[in-house]
Amino acid sequence: MQEVTTEKKEFTPNIVAFCCNWCSYAGADLAGSSRLTYPANVKIIRVPCSCRVNPMFVLKAFQQGADGVILCGCHPGDCHYVTGNYYTRRRMALLFSFLNYMGIEKERTRVEWVSAAEGARFSAVMNDFVKTVTELGENKRLTDLRVKEGE
């Protein structure tokens, strides 16, 4: 509660971005080759399809110290596997709503659709997400203190 807002000095959040191989990861590539920047603290994990992301992955990311988790996939209708991201959409809508129900700040989780041609959008999405989570501060509600022990 208060603990979240006490300190705000020089906080750089750890962001985990799950990107689908066919669209969003290619989008990130394009962002790179177009010399568009996105913060270095975004750690991309490439997945074959956004629907490969098991809720456990999201929780594990938070456990290991992520301050925000973002899922990126192909735009609905453009999935390489035709329907994968439709399932993702339902799953993540329910999961993130549920996490919020348990008191996890809603700004920490996000789903964005980024195509292979949207390098600029990828960069903008990441910049915006990092900014939001930075303002929010450190994740303390869904982290495992044992992992951070000794830091």
Partner: peptide, 21 residues
């Protein structure tokens, strides 16, 4: 079941979170 099906017009997760779905 709802999680093994979908419709093209399903709500966006971000909208659900922000109460805009």
């Amino acid at each position: 079941t709802p999680l093994t099906s979908y419709t093209e017009g399903d709500a966006e997760p971000n909208d659900v979170l922000n109460g805009e779905a």
